[in-house]
């Protein structure tokens, strides 16, 4: 469960990035976070990833109180999350298998377990036959699927996708969104930050709209204005 209570983020130069956001996302929900550039979506993501702390208010993610979380516990907290970026952020010098396995190495998973789990996750995202390929041998959509597999590798409870379809063509975008929905049906909470109106309208999920650092609309099956 993710809960924000009157969360404000004001930068030292007095810029108000979030002006009091209150929001609750239950376990297993699928949520689009939409808004124009500079609306505060990125700041919200940064707070959820605990790259920054809120200036005031309360921000809880599962049992973690991010307003009080000490730096040394941040790594442990982030293992609750799977993150997908617009630019994939894969390691170009590692194969598809190695990219996914790396996420498991990072948290100290034994090699024997990695060997079993990585092919299984890659099968889930439809890349079971691309284990030995390097990212530059894959299409944008395939690269994003590898990124998704990596995000799933450590079995996180929450998936945060920041503009996951921003760098891929519309057909592939549908594929990625379908995958995210599939992951959601497996019980994961999925938050998709996007400004792609057509996708949001098409999928008819809960939509949280942010403008000028505030939640201006929050409705299920909402249309993106």
């Amino acid at each position: 469960m993710i809960e924000l209570q009157n969360v404000k983020k004001i930068y030292p130069n007095k810029t108000v990035a979030l002006g009091g956001v209150t929001l609750r996302i239950e376990d297993g929900e699928f949520v689009f976070v939409v808004g124009h550039s500079g609306a505060g979506k990125t700041t919200l993501m940064r707070l959820l990833l605990r790259e920054e702390k809120p200036t005031s208010g309360k921000l809880m993610v599962n049992e973690f109180d991010l307003t009080k979380l000490p730096n040394y516990k941040v790594a442990h907290y982030r293992r609750q999350l799977g993150v997908v970026f617009q630019d994939f952020r894969l390691f170009p010098n590692k194969t598809v298998y190695e990219n996914v396995a790396f996420a498991m190495h990072v948290v100290g998973t034994p090699t024997s377990k990695i060997r079993k789990r990585v092919p299984a996750i890659l099968n889930t995202v439809g890349l079971g036959d691309k284990l030995k390929c390097y990212p530059n041998e894959l299409s944008g959509g395939e690269q994003q699927r590898v990124a998704l597999a990596r995000a799933l590798a450590n079995n996180p409870k929450i998936i945060i996708a920041d503009e996951p379809t921003g760098n891929i063509d519309p057909e592939m975008s549908i594929e990625i969104m379908n995958l995210l929905l599939k992951i959601n049906r497996l019980g994961k909470t999925v938050i998709v930050v996007t400004h792609e109106k057509s996708l949001v309208d098409y999928y008819q999920q809960r939509v949280v709209t942010i403008e000028h650092g505030r939640v201006v609309e929050d409705k299920v099956g909402g249309m993106f204005e």
Binding site: L49, Y72, A75, H76, Y77, R78, R79, L81, V83, R89, F91, F102, A103, V106, V107, G108, R150, N154
Partner: peptide, 12 residues
């Protein structure tokens, strides 16, 4: 950066 998001500790 990616290591941080994945949950790598500072030691790692």
């Amino acid at each position: 950066n990616v290591m941080r998001y994945i949950g790598a500790t500072r030691t790692f």
